[in-house]
Design a protein around this nucleic acid. Structure first.
Lengths: 315, 315
DNA sequence: TTGTTTGATGTTATCGGTAACAGTTTAATC
DNA sequence: GATTAAACTGTTACCGATAACATCAAACAA
């Protein structure tokens, strides 16, 4: 393995100059830079990350903290981890999965946190290392997420274009930011069209939305579309409609959000918003590493939602 | 972060003694060891892996080299990587995915190689760092794999128990070790029952086995079971039987091997061998790290196959 | 008793980088 | 032309560990 010193000798400069060429090229004259670059090329020099890490007092470890319970049947978090790990590996960082309990064990260079609740804001604010959240928030933390508002806005728009005359929002009974955003997308579309909004909220389980629809079936007019905050809720709604003798998508429309695993097995498939969790995971990694390197906040990254057309809206 | 020096001071010994307590405890008196252990506990000392790596001239990088073309629709290699990465992360090693082309770029501490062919034996033998293969081989390399022979043996046995009177083996046209082992499992079962073996080999594509069955349909007696070397081949066989008017599983049985993704979509599901690729990936990682640490060969690890009962053998 | 061996512990140099500071050259100012 | 600031480049110490060597005391042999 060729080292800094080898390059330095070959280029007739000091180690420090070589180091500077790599890390602060603006502080070296072009002349020397050329010499150094050439020496590096000739010797096929690759910096030793380990030595660099030691000198910089860094660990090359990123902690991923998942604050929700993990539903292992959903590949959701698996994909997230794959995305993060892929990026981190690329930069020779390693990923450490931690929970709230063992959060403080061992050092690290930064955190990726997902599933944050309001009650978590305080301790996250106190962290001394860079943080990136997966999932939107309104507390000033950098985050990566889908544009939730745009998602429901698009789905609502599509439903109206397909001729449904009433839009009912079926949301998640939660005070989290993403839910507010999804509601906001629906509301905006409905208000633009001067329609009367109707919102309901449940825990995120298909049987809850299903029960609700069945109990209120007589009050629901034909030609209604349900804009649901998750695929799970959508699945429940669709099931209820079918059981009550309604026709999807002819008389009733249903849309979901998330489209991870359910979309694979449902029939007809839910018209929903597709998110590439892997891609967003990568973005989490990239953003955090940038933040670590620059020491500055990197802002947030919002992925534009993509419609995934299933069979629960008219064609 | 507490360092070796902090511990040394607290215990009134030199850094070196602390280091020895960790790495060569037999070379330190029990008395001092106790002092050091106590100091470590009190200060909650965790060794700095980075510094250790630098001193030991190690990289904490493991290269994973996949020598086959990757079928991205199959989560096979994804799962393998997840399994490996999980283990490596646990030990703060990072995984680098390489191909034959960029294999030599950058240093590492060891290799995990999968998809090895006979032509690869030479260069793999020349590697200077520890290697673990994923997939059995007969060249003395340590490996992790399913017990291929036991798999087809079990499936053949099951088919006979279900009353099929003839067993035809549909194998992969390849000189690789796993294929020989799968054939051997079939042969052993057939010979134990004093039956006449019948083997055919094709490339691993469903249409190849399908074509073969259709072309030879008139020569195949009822009550035959096909022991296939892969789920793909099994799928082709089943399709052919159905198209030719045969009944699965009543008149014909079919078994596969691997059961990764196809098993999810096929109907009826193939009776096959299930392998936990993630688990085997973890084992690859563990074995390689042990090998790196001990400097000695760790032998091979063979996972016992598990039957996955589908609907292609009689109940 | 004295030299030698053995085992336990401490000292020093090193792994391959980087920051902080020191030294040198060049350009700008009066 | 002398003074001073600015821009480069080199020196030194250090990050936190480990191996190799040095040291020292106790145990043993002659």
């Amino acid at each position: 393995m060729t080292t800094l010193l080898d390059v330095a000798k070959k280029a007739n400069v000091s180690k420090m100059t070589v180091s500077r060429v790599i890390n602060h090229p603006d502080k070296v004259t072009d002349e020397l830079k050329q010499l150094v670059y050439e020496a590096m090329r000739e010797l096929d020099y690759h910096p030793n990350v380990i030595a660099k890490a030691l000198a910089n007092n860094s660990t090359r470890i990123i902690k991923l903290c998942i604050l929700e319970d993990i539903d292992t049947t959903e590949p959701y978090y698996m994909n997230l981890m794959i995305g993060i790990a892929k990026t981190l590996d690329l930069h020779q960082y390693s990923l450490q999965l931690v929970t709230r309990r063992n959060f403080d064990i061992g050092n690290c260079d930064g955190y990726i946190i997902t599933g944050m609740r309001i009650s978590d804001v305080d301790w996250i604010k106190d962290l001394k290392k860079p943080v990136v959240l997966f999932g939107e928030n309104r507390y000033g933390f950098d985050f990566i997420d889908t544009n939730n508002k745009a998602g429901t806005y698009l789905l609502s728009q599509l439903a109206l274009k397909k001729g449904y005359e009433k839009l009912i929002y079926v949301g998640i009974d939660s005070k989290e930011s993403f839910e507010y955003s999804r509601e906001a997308g629906y509301l905006q579309q409905v208000q633009e069209k001067r329609m009367v909004p109707e919102l309901h909220r449940f825990g995120n389980h298909s049987h809850l939305s299903e029960d609700f629809i069945r109990q209120n079936w007589d009050k629901i007019p034909k030609n209604t579309a349900f804009i649901c905050a998750s695929d799970r809720l959508a699945l429940g709604v669709e099931r209820a409609i079918v059981r009550c003798g309604g026709k999807v998508p002819d008389d009733f429309g249903v849309t979901g959000f998330d489209g991870v695993f359910l979309n694979q097995v449902a029939s007809p498939k839910i018209t929903t918003i597709k998110q590439s969790i892997i891609q967003m995971g990568s973005a989490c990694g990239e953003t955090l590493l940038d933040k670590i390197q620059s020491g500055e906040s990197q802002g947030s990254l919002v992925f534009e939602p993509k419609l995934s057309l299933g069979g629960t809206l008219r064609d």
